[in-house]
Amino acid sequence: MMKFTKQNFIFLVGGIIIYVVDIGVDFWVASRYFCQGQYCWGILLLCFRGLSSLITQVFSYEWFKNDWEGTNTGKLKWIFLVHLFQCGIFIRYWFALKYGCQAAFKQKSSRDASETDPPNFIQKQAVDAVTDINMLRVFKTFLETTPQLFVQIYILMEHEKNNFCQYAAIISSFCGISFSMVDYQISLRKSLPDKDEFRVLPKLVYLLYKLLTITSWILSISLITLLSVRSSVILLLFLWICGFTWTLKQHTTFCKSRKMEYLYRTVVGIILIFTFFNIKGKKTKVCISIYYATHTVVTLGILFVYMFWKTSIIKEIHFTIVSILTILSLVLGIIFLVVYYRHFHPTAYCRPQACSDEVDGEAGQKDRVKIGRFQNFIMQ
């Protein structure tokens, strides 16, 4: 049975603190750019935050509406008003703290308790509440935090003068990505049936795999942006079209409404620009190999192009450092990827007696009710 422990509650409280600090850092960094007369950078950072907040609020309200279908409409109107003012995530944190406190400190469940027993029910409520938050944080990571990291690294590479504000934004972005990735994988293990506990070593390997491959790719995109902003925009747009098209071909069924499903596929297309995610729970050895092989070829191509233009755009010493970091993080990231998938990845997405390779498959209808939204979410 899924368990919500005291350690999970402590991490939940830490997540709230990090979320609030991240908001403060974003507005502080943007205000610094405005004070320095760099209005474009300040507006761009705020646009990333605004877009991320808008999309996460839309999904959060839609999930509340689905969960509370047929209940008091007055409560839903109040929830809508809170989301309209971009504060829906705090409502979700309140529910998570409420259920999490009951599950971790006040409930005592027996080993042979059934799913309908109050202790088990509270445990499930706590896990589901935190899972929803972590799904929203995945959206936030790739709609806001990762693009902000790209912008900050680009600014550092473009300008000679560096300041504490830029380093604070980069550190904040790295922390946001790290916590989001680990929390997401923990929720995946808790929400899917018959999964091993996500221990310290698998967490570290998964974190390094994601963080290093994303860092390498962001450095590569930053380099091509220095060479030509237009080329960078065209490349990112092309990658999004590829990711969105692949998502369409997978026939995802995450949302109940057609409009929300297309919004979900659009967001997943953006996520696929930066990292690979398995959106259907199928075996993806071929897909992930093609994905990172393509990233490797593009990265090496960008570095090769820079060998001819580096003297006029970026200092040789800077190019040498960036190219070494790019290649090193890519190689190490792929090594950790192989180690994770070979030794720590939860390869089965269903119970043995109801084996179906697809997450949406007919086998496992009984588990689908227990698992909830994560059953049709990005599964990696």
Rank of each mutant, 00 (worst) to 15 (best):
M1T: 08
T5F: 13
G15M: 03
F27Q: 02
Q36G: 14
F48M: 11
F48C: 04
L54S: 05
Q57W: 14
Q57F: 12
V58E: 04
W63M: 08
G70K: 08
T71W: 12
T71N: 05
N72K: 14
G74C: 14
I79R: 10
L81M: 15
L84W: 05
L84V: 08
I91H: 01
G100F: 01
G100E: 07
G100Q: 01
Q102P: 00
A103Q: 01
K106M: 13
S109Q: 06
D112T: 08
D112H: 15
T116H: 11
F121C: 07
I122V: 15
I122Q: 00
K124A: 09
Q125F: 12
D132K: 01
I133Q: 00
N134Q: 13
K140S: 03
M157V: 04
E158C: 08
F164Q: 10
C165V: 11
C165G: 03
Y167E: 13
A168L: 14
I170N: 03
S173L: 15
F174A: 10
S178I: 10
S180A: 15
M181V: 13
Y184C: 07
Q185A: 11
I186Y: 09
I186F: 13
S187P: 06
S191R: 02
E197N: 08
E197H: 15
R199W: 07
V200G: 11
P202A: 06
V205A: 14
V205N: 00
L207H: 15
K210C: 14
L211I: 10
L211A: 11
L212A: 10
L212I: 05
T213I: 14
T213N: 10
S216P: 06
S216W: 06
S220G: 04
L223N: 00
I224Q: 00
V229A: 07
V233E: 13
V233R: 09
L235S: 13
L237Q: 06
I241G: 15
C242F: 08
W246K: 12
Q250V: 05
Q250L: 10
H251A: 13
F254N: 12
K259D: 09
M260R: 09
M260P: 07
V268R: 01
I273Y: 13
I279S: 02
K282R: 12
A293G: 08
T294H: 12
H295M: 03
V297G: 04
V297Q: 02
V298S: 00
L300C: 02
I302Y: 00
M307E: 03
F308W: 07
W309R: 06
K310T: 06
T311E: 15
K315Q: 15
K315F: 14
F319I: 06
F319T: 05
I321L: 14
I324E: 10
T326R: 08
I327H: 15
I334S: 01
I335L: 07
F336D: 00
R342W: 05
F344V: 04
Y349D: 02
C350Q: 01
R351N: 03
Q353T: 04
V369N: 13
R373Q: 08
N376I: 02
